Amino acid sequence: MSSMFQEIVAFILCTSGWVLVSSTLPTDYWKVSSNDGTVITTATYWSNLWKTCVTDSTGVSDCKDFPSMLALDGYIQVCRGLMISAVCLGFFGSIFALVGMKCTKIGGSDKNKARIACFAGVNFILSGLCSLTAYSLYAHRITSEFFDPFFVEQKYELGAALFIGWAGSVLCILGGTMLCFSIAGSFTNSAVSHSHISSYPKGQAKPVNPRPTPAHSSSSRMQHFDKNVYV
């Protein structure tokens, strides 16, 4: 029951992290910057993996999609690939986790279900690592440009999508690790129980509290027999 509860908690963590990571892919505020006037903010500049926009004080946004994928900066292309890989890995991990969990009725034998659930945990871990790498790479580019005194273009700060994505990535990694450890525990318990049962031949009962035979009993009998053998 404890391993089943651990699997359920791990599945909740993994799916929650995957949903958070997936939600940041179309989110607007990956990086944000604002120009402040004397009283109110006059304009807010923000950008993500797909477009760059500006929003004025009235709330009207003017966006411009990136014109060509081949003309993009290298870090944006890498982040796109990592994020798409993270979403796909998390999707297949969710399906495999549903099939391999003990509380479901599909997946075959317990051994096959354990293997499928372990594969799902590895998928979630890889998904979390891919998304974590993408967010960290994007944030590194923002901070390096912000603190560069020779960078004269518009400087941005970290957006809300990065913090949400970091939290989702950590949840995916923790949930996948917990799922793998729960399966490893079930493998260990099954191996121990199998070896304990197979140590006794079929049809032979396990002795209950066997009484030890004294080591000197046979020798005392032989000595008694030697004394009376010629009488």
Rank of each mutant, 00 (worst) to 15 (best):
E157W: 08
A167L: 14
S186D: 12
V192F: 10
G185M: 11
H194T: 10
I173L: 12
H196D: 13
L162H: 04
G185R: 12
G175C: 05
F187M: 12
L179H: 06
F151R: 07
K155D: 08
S182G: 09
F151S: 08
A184K: 13
V170M: 11
S190G: 01
Q154R: 15
L171Y: 03
A184S: 14
G168C: 06
F151A: 08
A167F: 08
E153S: 15
Q154H: 11
L158I: 15
F181V: 11
F181S: 09
Q154A: 10
G159D: 05
S190P: 00
I183T: 10
L162Q: 05
F187A: 07
C172P: 00
V170N: 00
F181D: 03
A160M: 08
Y156Q: 08
G168Y: 04
S190T: 05
G165A: 09
L174E: 00
G168Q: 02
L179N: 04
H196E: 13
S195G: 02
V192A: 13
S186N: 10
Q154Y: 08
H196V: 06
F151P: 01
F163M: 10
V152D: 13
G159M: 06
A167G: 14
F151L: 05
S195Y: 09
G176T: 03
V152L: 14
M178S: 07
Y156C: 11
I183L: 03
A167C: 10
I173Y: 02
L174G: 01
F187Y: 13
I197Y: 08
L171A: 09
A160Q: 09
M178P: 00
S195I: 06
G185F: 02
I173P: 04
L179C: 08
E157A: 11
I164A: 08
L179D: 01
G165K: 06
L171Q: 02
L158R: 12
T188W: 04
W166Q: 04
G165W: 03
H194I: 01
A167Y: 00
N189C: 06
S186Q: 13
E157H: 12
L162T: 04
T177G: 14
L171K: 03
I164L: 13
S182Q: 03
A161C: 10
S190H: 08
W166P: 00
S193Q: 14
G176N: 04
F151E: 09
N189F: 07
A184T: 03
H196Y: 11
I173A: 06
A191W: 07
M178G: 07
S193G: 02
V152I: 11
L179Y: 02
T188E: 09
A184F: 11
L174R: 01
K155Y: 10
W166A: 13
E157S: 14
L162P: 00
C172Q: 12
E157C: 06
I173N: 02
F151G: 03
G165Y: 05
I173H: 03
C180I: 08
T177W: 02
M178Q: 07
F187P: 00
I164E: 05
S193D: 13
C180V: 09
F151M: 05
